[in-house]
Design a protein around this nucleic acid. Sequence first.
RNA 1: GGAGAGAUACCCAAGUGGUUAAGGGGCUCCCCUGCUAAGGGAGUAGAUCGAGAAAUCGGUGCGAGGGUUCGAAUCCCUCUCUCUCCGCCA
Length: 428
Amino acid sequence: MIDIKLLRANPEIVKENIRKKFQDEKLPLVDEVISLDQEYRNAKSRADFLRSRRNSISKEIGALMAKGLKDQAIEAKKEVEAMAEELESLKELEDKLSKRINEIMLVIPNIIDESVPIGRDDSENVEIERIGEPYVPDFEIPYHVEIMEKLKGIDIDSARKTSGNGFYYLCGDIARLHSAILTYARDFMIDKGFTYYIPPFMIRSAVVNGVMSFTEMENMMYKIEGEDLYLIGTSEHSMIGKFIDSILSEDELPYKLTSYSPCFRKEVGAHGIEERGVYRIHQFEKQEMIIVCKPEESMKWFKTLYNLTVEFFRSLDIPVRVIECCSGDLADLKVKSVDVEAWSPRQKKYFEVGSCSNLGEAQARRLGIRVKGKDGNYYPHTLNNTVVAPPRMLIAFLENNLNADGSVRIPKPLRVYMGMKEKIEPNG
RNA sequence: GGAGAGAUACCCAAGUGGUUAAGGGGCUCCCCUGCUAAGGGAGUAGAUCGAGAAAUCGGUGCGAGGGUUCGAAUCCCUCUCUCUCCGCCA
């Protein structure tokens, strides 16, 4: 959500940004919102004038009544009543216009950073760097479900009975590995100076509406029947929601937060649940990182954040690459975003395991998160990034740490969380 | 789940339809005072929107949203949260 003042003053900047994102169908909205905004301000000026009149006359009536001058009071009442109709229709107009303006402003994309590569869709995303050698062993890597089943670590058939497609039971060493990775991720982030949070796993509709669009909500969020509560799709929802409508003190910035939560997603959108396995599922767990900082620091934090994910994956011997989202693939609220992808030696390609985003001030503006500065209040920048999200991450982990005999290496940092085991074995 | 009480500024708190939302603490500034004190005075309703080059003016705002009224912190309706008691519970 951009500042309407920017749009009033520099509509060309906003239009150019829309063109860069190949959303030309939104171009007319810019002129539409400018004229609606003018209409709105005219209506507001007139209505405010009438309200001001009404307030002062009402005060006079009070004074007249106190003196017992009833007749004069009745005369004054008539004057207010005379403008009641105009005021009411102006109020309706104000409400209608501001609602429409707000709708449009929500659809107009945030101004992307100059450094974002221009491209239509994800096929034009740009690889920034590869870290680690994408290694393909000389034996065949089975599908991840097969690896897990050999280790007696997954039961999808039972999950289908209890919960349907898109769910799983993890068990034994695989379940333990899943927890170990999250616990390691938690400690990894704490060691980097982040504050650990366990947030609410359900949030109210008011918060949902603040953190995502209606379509996103429909496609992602599970609603609790008979309650005004939704299961979170990521802890970012509760973590950013926590700051809604509040004024932060400048000396508390930056907030460096890391949160754990289960995540629930309907996955109604383009893909649905189409693959057997744990790649796209209704329920997973995630360690997340969140930054709320001064505007001038957000790009520095952006790099820091995705490098933390890279460092985390490298510490588990998983090759990764960083892909920058091009202008057309960038969500409307984002200023800049990269995906961290892990190497799959089975598919011989990289696949997404995390996403790092700089939202600029757009999210803060939308949620009413402000900072009390020396020269007035301003909107902070917000960023979020995945540390790790198993069980999808287990796919990369198992494929990259698999031995020819079907056992799986446990990299050093995880061993303390795995009973000091150096590997897990099919008959372990 | 049941019963009751409450939500006003940085904090405490008064305010049951009418001119400018009491008072106290705290904080800021000034005065007095040779010494960690005490006293006197002034300021202190955040936030947000609009008009204006600016000074400034106006609107909204007493948990949220509606309603009644010329006028609502105050009356009515719905909701949220907090506290106390009872019940239930990992």
